[in-house]
Design a protein around this nucleic acid. Structure first.
Length: 759
DNA sequence: CTCCTTTGTCTTTTT
DNA sequence: GACAAAGGAG
């Protein structure tokens, strides 16, 4: 009996088809990870392929690590297989060869924040009105140009007759120049510079073609044009390319993912063999039926028939709530119940469409003492304090990085203000040198005056760090930076409330540097910075922790849980308001695929929740049950939808508009709200809001009416306990109350949401 | 140059 | 409700 006997017929066929192009259409939960690992093992053990000749691309670092581990469990010399993400694989290649494109091999990586800062600076220099042209527009424009491998020149050609595009083209040129000047690459560059490298240097490409004779790509449906081109270049010679994907799970169009890559695979590789994996080993029949019922509303997909032998299982739970607050309460309570029955916290995942929705859930879990981890929202490495420290390291490592330099030049404060910085930037720009080089010549810049002394001090400090680079270990270097710059003290005086947490984060960074040195032989500063730039938040999840995971559905891709809560199943939240109003079918289909991904994360239990009202950007939003819930046959749910809604067709726009929908531009609406606050429209909104918050009991329906407590009264809050009302001010829409809580200290809150009870 | 307040803006998903 | 930018005072 061999390890391959545990595979089903199709899986076995996929594992044993080692030569030529192969497309594996792997439905959700069909065991594709097993297929991939076994395929690697089979190549090595049975086909005698050198592990070094295998390249496997995964979607996250975490997935790469897991696959490496599993392969290592099956075969002896699995270590030399390249298993990594597109970005880390390309990074490894570029570190060796990018000098051929005129960059230094110790280039830095710009994340989205850095990108934005750079574009902002460019816009300022080009005198672009930020009100008319938003940075976002340029970022998206440039990014999608790069995703489709358009150089600034090519983009300019395509921009003919389109004023906005011409504008983007201008910025794109400047942006690319600035990146080169700073010896930096952005995320997209990591891929497309590799393609550029291969195209410009056939001998390098050939070298890697010989290296990677067998290539596998996971989550193929989410590759973009640049990634496809990269793979095509590498695989063209030996044509041993195996891609695994599911067109129904393509959810990264916004990031340039091109669903045609999977739909047209057989056109690009006519000799390709196609294998469908349709048996689902993850979910019960009910969950699968729900997923199938939703996804079948999409057109233009590859037909698949997922099935399972796991039996019906429990019905899908559907719960409808008056407010997002109650929704969070239910989810939290239900998880507690699950644990009381002997389950684990880590069996459960709470998923939502947008990161902002995590807040209420989190509060509730803190309150109930449920251990949880929020994945996403703010990546560890994008916290300000971490970015600051990293900016120091970047400046020490690669002094060409202007963005990093600008970040720390006056943090902590050392008396170098905005005017001085702009003078340096101007001088640098005029002389085509980096800002750091300009600062080294501070005495030659006439306009600086006495600020020059401060700049010399800064430059000297960086020089000292740099001279210590040889002798310091990474953690020591970070510690030295924090000490010499007085960064700890700076944190304490800048963030009076959160400084402890921030200091812990910095300590965490030091431990990560320690771990990095242990794991890597060549643990130099450059590679540490690169490693850190490509870490996704999901990579930090440890299965052995018994915690509930909270994350977006996007982050949950590739994961599975015993019990999944899909929260915020509201029309307007999921699918998003924008998708509904623009009426773009493609966008709606992508949202639907996202729903499909969410549903299919569940193994045994699936709970869908909807809240009739929730706060979105400070305003109450009312919504109907998500159309995706309505696409699930009623008999699969344990709780029928409310009759009136259930049989509404959602083609009919009127009943499904959020109650406060108003076609006027926001600004107009807002002004009106503040000016005549007791128009029926508003009054109605507020009173129903009060009902939802459970405040109508005392008869005080309108929140503009005074609460039943006053300054000096003792009140009780559900989370903060008892306290004394210190101040109360009437605002147009609500009362703002300041309370000194006995335990939690002073808080300012709005009366209608605080749910304060007089004691 | 720095600190504070006020004003305005907000499509969401991430390597 | 959260955050960045802008404006004004010290």
């Amino acid at each position: 009996m061999s390890i391959y006997d545990t595979l089903n017929r199709e899986q076995k066929e996929a594992v044993m088809t080692t030569e030529g192009p192969l497309l594996i259409l792997a439905g959700a939960g069909s065991g594709k990870t097993r297929v991939l690992t076994h395929r690697v093992a089979y190549l090595i053990d049975e086909m005698g392929v050198n592990p070094w000749n295998i390249l496997a691309i995964t979607f996250t670092n975490k997935a790469a690590g897991e696959m490496k581990e599993r392969v290592g469990n099956i075969v002896d010399n699995g270590d030399s297989v390249w298993v990594s993400t597109f970005h880390s694989a390309c990074l490894r290649i570029l570190r060796r060869h990018i000098y051929l494109l005129g960059y230094d091999n110790n280039f830095t990586i710009y994340d989205t924040d850095d990108q934005k800062t750079l574009i902002k600076n460019i816009c300022k220099r080009l005198d672009i009105d930020p009100k008319k042209f938003k940075e976002r527009l340029f970022m998206n424009g440039i990014s999608s140009a790069k995703d489709s491998l358009l150089s600034p020149e090519e983009y300019r050609m395509s921009a003919m007759g389109d004023l906005t595009k011409q504008m983007i083209s201008k910025v794109y040129f400047e942006y690319q120049d600035a990146l080169r000047q700073s010896n930096a690459l952005d995320f997209d560059d990591i891929i497309c510079k590799t393609v550029e490298l291969f195209k410009a240097n056939p001998e390098v490409l050939d070298n890697y073609r010989e290296h990677f004779k067998y290539i596998m790509v996971d989550e193929y449906q989410d590759t973009n044009t640049a990634q496809f081109e990269l793979i095509r270049l590498l695989a063209e010679k030996y044509r041993n390319l195996c891609v695994v994907g599911d067109d129904d799970q393509s959810i990264y169009k916004f990031r340039g993912a091109n669903i045609r890559n999977i739909l047209d695979f057989e056109k690009h590789f006519p000799e390709a063999k196609v294998i469908k994996l349709e048996q689902n080993y993850r979910s019960t029949e009910n969950i699968l039926a729900a997923a199938n019922a939703v996804i079948k509303n999409n057109i233009g997909r590859k037909e698949k028939a997922l099935w399972t032998d796991k039996g019906n299982g429990e019905k899908i739970h559907f719960r409808d709530f008056e407010s997002a607050y109650e929704e969070a309460e239910y989810v939290s309570d239900d998880i507690s119940r699950h644990v009381r029955k002997g389950g684990k916290y880590s069996d459960c995942a709470v998923l939502y469409r947008t990161n902002a929705q995590s807040r209420l859930l989190e509060e509730k879990m803190v309150h109930d003492g449920i251990p949880y981890q929020v994945v996403g929202s703010i990546n560890f490495y994008s916290r300000v304090e971490i970015k600051d420290v990293l900016a120091y390291l970047k400046t020490i490592d690669n002094a060409k990085d202007d963005i990093a330099l600008r970040r720390i030049i006056n943090v902590p404060k050392r008396g170098i203000g905005a005017t001085t910085i702009e003078k340096i930037a101007d001088y640098a720009y005029q002389n085509s040198i980096t800002m750091y080089d300009a600062m080294c010549r501070a005495d030659e810049i006439p306009t600086l005056g006495k600020a020059a002394a401060k700049i010399n001090g800064f430059v000297n400090m960086i020089r000292v760090f740099r001279s210590g680079l040889e002798s310091y270990t990474l953690p020591d270097l970070i510690k030295a930076v924090i000490e010499k710059t007085g960064y700890d003290a700076y944190l304490e005086e800048t963030y009076d409330e959160s400084f402890e947490e921030r200091e812990e984060n910095v300590d965490e960074l030091i431990s990560k540097a320690e771990a990095f040195e242990e794991e890597n032989e060549e643990a130099d500063l450059t590679s540490f910075l690169a490693d850190v730039a490509l870490v996704a938040d999901i990579d930090s999840v440890d299965e052995n922790d018994d915690r509930v995971l909270l994350m977006t559905i996007h982050s949950a891709k590739g994961l599975e849980f015993e019990s999944v809560y899909l929260t915020g199943m509201d029309d307007g939240v999921f699918p998003g308001f924008m998708t509904i109003t623009t009426g773009n079918d493609e966008d709606m289909e992508e949202e639907r695929r996202l729903a499909y991904v969410g549903i299919t994360r569940a193994k045994k239990e699936l709970t869908l929740t909807h809240a009739k009202a929730r706060m979105v950007r400070g305003e109450m939003q009312y919504s109907a049950v998500s159309r995706f819930v309505k696409e699930i046959p009623g008999e699969l749910l344990d709780n029928r939808l409310p009759q009136s809604r259930r049989f509404d067709s959602y083609d009919d726009p009127i009943p499904l508009q959020p109650v406060n929908f108003d076609p006027r531009p926001r600004a107009t609406l807002r002004k009106k709200v503040t000016r005549d606050e007791d128009k029926p429209f508003i009054a109605k909104g507020i009173s129903s809001l009060n009902n939802l918050a459970g405040l109508s009991k005392g008869g005080a329906a309108l929140s503009v009416e005074k609460p039943d407590y006053d300054i000096g009264d003792r009140v009780k809050h559900i989370k903060f306990g008892t306290g004394t009302v210190e101040d109360m001010t009437k605002e147009p829409r609500d009362y703002k109350v300041k309370i000194m809580f006995d335990d939690a200290g002073p808080k300012i809150m709005y009366a209608s949401f605080a749910k304060l009870k007089k004691v």
